[in-house]
Structure formats: structure tokens, C-alpha cells
Amino acid sequence: MSKVLVVTSGKGGVGKTTSTAALGAALAQSGQNVVVVDFDVGLRNLDLVMGAERRVVFDFINVINGDAKLAQALIRDRRIDTLSLLPASQTRDKDALTPEGVARVLDELREKFDWVICDSPAGIERGALLAMYHAEVAVIVTNPEVSSVRDSDRIIGLLDSKTAKAEAGEKIDKHLLLTRYNAARAARGEMLKTEDVLDILSIPLLGIIPESEEVLRASNLGAPVTLNNPTSAPARAYFDAVKRLQGDSIAMTVPTARRGLIGKLFGRRVA
């Protein structure tokens, strides 16, 4: 049975695209058939993060307009053959994404894949609404800081009212993914606590992804972090998140600060 999942946030730059790539790859690594779909028309980036930017020929809009068949626009990952990408258009504007077109393409994707993962653009406009409309599962990417939490609250409201599920009187399955979690700053009390964020948003926690240079390295190299360095802390956190998505209940690991030699010598002053 296939599932449409949206990765969304409201606020920009919190880690949606990074998380789409990592969750998509992790699901594919577990043997599922996965497609990641870029909804960020005009500002596509998922192709870069996945390392497929040189291979984009046709995109989502080409398929909607009938310039290309879906199979021609899908880019199969060279490392895991159960992972594919449907890139966004870099040149058109957001209006090219029509509700009927999106519905048609997503229906076709559902037939081919176990998971259809939609990378939402930031904001609460057309693109973001279309990305969430067909989803039955939502991953709300939030950073532990006030504006991100507020925007997530707004997005949760939209998920509960503006999706096909909501319109049918059903509940969309929502999960919170805390990203860019900085353990050192959390220890110093400079960041919102996980409990506080959970308290405010009151949706279940899917995972806590630490702030890590491994994420930057992976995107420089064009590989989801779960592929580039599967044993790194952020990759392990994404693998755990995927297990929870699949219904496993596994203990939550809260990232801890690992101080280097300098940190140990000078204590808190050098964090």
C-alpha cells in the first residue's frame, strides 16, 4: 500500500530538503520503493542534495503539461535502485503547478512506489498547499527556536484543514522532526527544550536530528546523509525516524554534546 508523505515547515531553511533526501534514502535503503518529489518550483534544490543535478532532463511541470511521460522525468538514483527523484522545474513559476496536474501525477506515482515523499517549499502559499494536499502523513520539520515553532503551529493548522484528508473529515498523520538540534546550546539552556516544543505543538516526536557538519559534507558531495555516512549521528537519527514512521517504537536518543580536547580543557567557555 502506497503512502504520500509531505515534508513541510512553513519557515524556510529549517531542513526540509535535507530531511526529504535523508528520509527518502533511508526508506529506500530499507528496501522500500521510494520517490522524492520536489515541489519547490523555480527554486529546486532536491536534485543538488541528491546529486542528480547533471541528469535532469524533464521535470514535474513537463509531465503536467504533457511534454514528457512520467517515466522520462523520473531519475533513478545510481546508488540505490529503489530510490527515484521527480525534479521541480527551475524556470517556470508556481502557477504551472495545477491542482489537477498534481493530482494526476501523484496518482500515477502511487501506483509505482511504496512511498511518495513531497518536499514542500517554504511558506503557506500555493506550492506548500499543493505539496500537502494529497498527503496522508506529514513530517513537520522544526528547529528549536521560537519563529520556527510558531510557523510549524500554523502549518499544523493548515494540515488539519486544507488537505484532502481533512476535507474528507479524516485526520492526517502528523509527526514532528526536530532538526539542527545543537546539544551544546541545549545544555546551556540557550535553545527551546524538546519537551517545550512538544508541549506547545502537541504532536508526536519522530526524531531529533543533531546539527552536524556531516549534513553539510553530504550536501556538498550530493548524497543524502544516510548514504554518505550511515554511521554518523544525523544519519542514525534519520534511520531511527524511518523505523518509527514504519511503526516501530524505539527509544528516542537525544543528541549529547561531545566535547573535543579543547572543550574538555577549557570547559564551557569554548563551546
Binding site: 543538488l48 546529486g51 543535478e53 547533471r54 535532469v56 532532463v57 524533464f58 521535470d59 513537463n62 511534454d67 514528457a68 522545474s89 527551475q90 524556470t91 550536501s219 556538498n220 558531495l221 550530493g222
Partner: peptide, 23 residues
């Protein structure tokens, strides 16, 4: 970072040359 730089150079050269209308 050098890998990132090279990837971007190639990508942007193509995008600029064709005004993005490659598809």
C-alpha cells in the same frame, strides 16, 4: 567543498547558457 564548487560550476554554466530552458 572543492567537490561542491565543481558541481556548482558545471550546473550553473549549463543553466546560464541555456537560460534554464534545457528541458
Amino acid at each position: 567543498a572543492p567537490v561542491a564548487r565543481e558541481r556548482l560550476q558545471i550546473l550553473l554554466a549549463h543553466e546560464r547558457a541555456l537560460g534554464g530552458g534545457q528541458g
